[in-house]
């Protein structure tokens, strides 16, 4: 009886451990990728804000792909006019980052305003 209980208990614990380790690892990686995408998008928007004089034309521009920990990130920056404001004075900028990992495809979009200095 004791052997049966011990075996069941060990089996249950082993199941938890074996199923949790890979998914935890995946989740940790996914957060790392999302954190990287966030940092990359924010840096792209800030870089755009610093060099923009005068403001660039509205439109969408793809950025070069880059790789982080074996995952390829695609990104593009979209600039569009803000309703009620002159496009040479204020634009809405957004950076969209896409990547694919073991859990599937992901997307992060971050926005900001780009104002004439």
């Amino acid at each position: 009886m004791e052997t049966v209980i011990s075996s069941c208990l060990l089996g249950l614990v082993a199941f938890f451990v074996l199923s949790l380790f890979p998914s935890s690892s995946l989740l940790l990686h996914q957060d790392r990728f999302r954190g990287h995408a966030l940092e990359f998008a924010q840096a792209s928007l800030e870089g755009l804000d610093q060099v923009a004089r005068p403001l660039p034309p509205v439109g969408t521009k793809a950025q070069p792909d880059h790789e982080f920990e074996g995952v390829v990130f695609h990104s593009q920056i979209s600039l569009q006019a803000v309703a009620g404001e002159a496009p040479e004075q204020l634009l809405q900028a957004s950076c969209q980052v896409n990547w694919k990992d073991a859990l599937g495809s992901h997307q992060l979009e971050l926005g900001d305003y780009l104002a004439q200095h």
Binding site: I5, S6, L9, L10, L12, V13, A14, F16, V17, L20, F21, S24, L28
Partner: peptide, 18 residues
């Protein structure tokens, strides 16, 4: 077995917490 199970559960909780 109980001691081992407790240890493994502790590891699981630490991992989950992280």
């Amino acid at each position: 077995v109980l001691a081992l199970a407790c240890l493994l559960f502790l590891v699981v909780f630490v991992l989950l917490g992280t």
